[in-house]
Design a protein around this nucleic acid. Structure first.
Lengths: 230, 230
DNA sequence: GCTTGTGAAGCACTTCACAGCA
DNA sequence: TGCTGTGAAGTGCTTCACAAGC
């Protein structure tokens, strides 16, 4: 059994970004990278990057930098990506279709193993080689495909019921695209993505910038590139 | 000119969620709501909610709660949602299609005013009543439609060029779905949404939970429902 | 009596600055 | 000499606990 490093949440949320940057660097042929170089590629400052990586252990070489391949291995191991995880996607409307066809999942260690919907008229449809099944088949599908993560892409009113069903079949990680709060038992992790909320946050800054330009001091804006995270 | 309350980023990121919860409460017919009630609906604790709202000013009544309609008005005003903002969506692949058809934008004060793509074979296609135009037409479109926010839903290699074009035509707020870091001048805000990263964060917790169950102490999991934010 | 608004305390993350090591 | 790893300092957010007010 491996030791559990007890990582800060903020660090966990950045590791996937480091991983992406490392893969990009690996493709350029570099075998090592400095904290400065990797930090730039990931959009953070180097002190933060070094602190984050130090939580995983000492995988760098002073005076040289980090071994790209080794670091990829370590981060994938910490994130539990050494095994391919199976995802069940519930709700194949507009967004569900897009998610079902999104390459980014497969290329980063996830397999969409099942598509489900409550609407009988959608059941049977084939998307990207997968047939949509009725959501009531979830218990069977979850076992057959050893589902590890559930993705909810239904309208908001249906989301809680779907979450309950996912929890009932033993799913303990849920990614929720429906604009609503889900209540789940302790031990179940829910992450929420709300596209409209992102736009509203941008709207606030846009509004603030517009006000500032009219003020005596003039434009005093700052640029921020913030990753999604806790 | 209205006063600029200088809100904490963490508060700004939660205001849209409060707004959504308030609209839901308004539909049930309630005219006031306590901090406890609104906090539950928004998935936060009441102390945090009160602190957040206190930054906007005093719009509650002690012993009673908050006036739902008044609070909606205040939050919308702070977020700059009193005017409808026009969005240009670049990249109408899988994800772009879904975003173009997503109702949640229109219903929360955003109008998708233009669809653009670099692929000539996609130009001319009609999605949801909008015709896809070539990305080179961006300068004209930006002015004609007074674009306020740009959304990038292209593959990663194209994203930086698109961002540069958006910045060149005066867009200062960008929502980036491409899995890469964008570099933009000061004064331009970028928010990033990476669907695979969300899954990887869930994977970490799933991995950790699996390890814990094998440990002497048994399952010691916690549930977390985290909104996307800064 | 019930609920807001808020100073103060507590906590987590970020940044600094440099010792330690290749 | 150059870059990592890290204690210590700094910052911002969260939570507490209660006074203020309807």
């Amino acid at each position: 059994m491996p030791a559990l490093p007890e990582l800060p949440e903020a660090t966990v949320a950045r590791l996937p970004e480091y991983l992406r940057a490392l893969h990009a660097i690996a493709e350029t042929g570099h075998e090592t990278v400095s904290s400065e170089g990797l930090a730039n590629a990931a959009g953070v400052n180097s002190a933060k990057l070094r602190k984050d990586l130090s939580h995983l252990g000492s995988y760098g070489t002073r005076g040289v930098g980090y071994d790209v391949a080794l670091l990829i291995e370590q981060i994938e191991s910490v994130l539990g990506l050494t095994q391919c995880r199976s995802v069940a996607l519930v709700g194949v409307g507009n967004l569900g279709h897009a998610l079902a066809g999104y390459d980014g999942f497969a290329s980063r260690g996830f397999r969409i193993a099942a598509l489900l919907d409550a609407d009988p008229s959608r059941v049977g449809e084939e998307i990207n080689g997968l047939v949509v099944r009725h959501v009531d088949e979830l218990p069977r599908v979850a076992v057959e495909e050893s589902i590890s993560i559930g993705v909810i892409a239904t309208p908001a009113p249906a989301a809680q019921a779907v979450a309950d069903q996912l929890v009932a079949v033993g799913v303990t990680s849920i990614l929720n695209f429906a604009p609503c709060v889900l209540s789940v038992p302790e031990g179940v992790d829910v992450r929420k993505v709300d596209l409209a909320i992102e736009l509203q946050i941008l709207s606030f800054h846009e509004h603030r910038k517009a006000s500032l330009t009219a003020l005596p001091g003039g434009l005093a804006a700052t640029d921020t590139q913030e990753a999604i995270g806790t």
